Amino acid sequence: MRYFLALILLACGLSVAAQTGLPPAPYADRQLDDPAKEEAARNLMDELRCLKCQSQSIADSNAPMAGDMRSQVRERIAAGETPEQVRDWLIDRYGSWVSYDPPMTPTTWPLWIAPIILLIAALLLAKGRFRRKKDKK
């Protein structure tokens, strides 16, 4: 029993030690002074996926990684980069998966074409199904 209790305490201690002691990124939760630049940063943050949460944008996520990405977006836009340049930089750094609107490349074109092919297949199946019902009557 003592070993089990020691193991639990060790596991709890490791999880606490795993927490980062670094201060949060400077612009993680602080807005830019220029409203136009802040709006551009916000719009871009809504289009970028949190790498840790995966189902949230970096604007909505509370993960430290998302805070770092928000800060990077704000810092780069404050320095004069366009949202497209910042998005391209993040895609170069993390891959096209970071964007909710990935560019069409040879590796992503099946993702863009698959819904169209599935829609055409569904229409053809439905057409054949309705035709068979008419022929039976």
Rank of each mutant, 00 (worst) to 15 (best):
D29A: 15
I91A: 03
Q56F: 03
L48R: 02
M104L: 13
L5F: 12
I91V: 06
I77E: 08
P26T: 02
W112N: 12
L123W: 14
P64I: 01
P103Y: 04
K52D: 12
V16C: 06
A114I: 10
W112E: 15
K52V: 09
L7I: 10
W89A: 14
V73M: 02
L22M: 10
I120R: 10
S96P: 13
K52Y: 10
A41P: 01
I8M: 10
S15N: 11
G95F: 03
I58Q: 01
A63N: 04
R30S: 08
V73G: 05
D101K: 14
C50N: 02
W109M: 11
K134N: 03
K133E: 11
A78L: 05
A6L: 13
A18C: 12
L123T: 05
L51H: 04
R49E: 00
I116A: 15
F4E: 14
L22E: 11
T20Q: 13
F4V: 09
A18D: 12
Y100W: 12
E38C: 03
I113R: 06
P83W: 10
Q54E: 11
M65S: 09
L51W: 04
D33F: 10
A18W: 10
N43C: 11
L14Q: 08
S55V: 06
W109D: 01
L7H: 00
W112F: 15
Y27L: 14
F4M: 12
T108F: 10
T108C: 07
D33M: 08
C12L: 15
P26E: 15
L111V: 11
C12N: 13
E84N: 08
P115Y: 07
R49D: 04
W97H: 11
G67H: 00
P35F: 05
L90G: 02
Y94K: 06
L7F: 10
S15L: 13
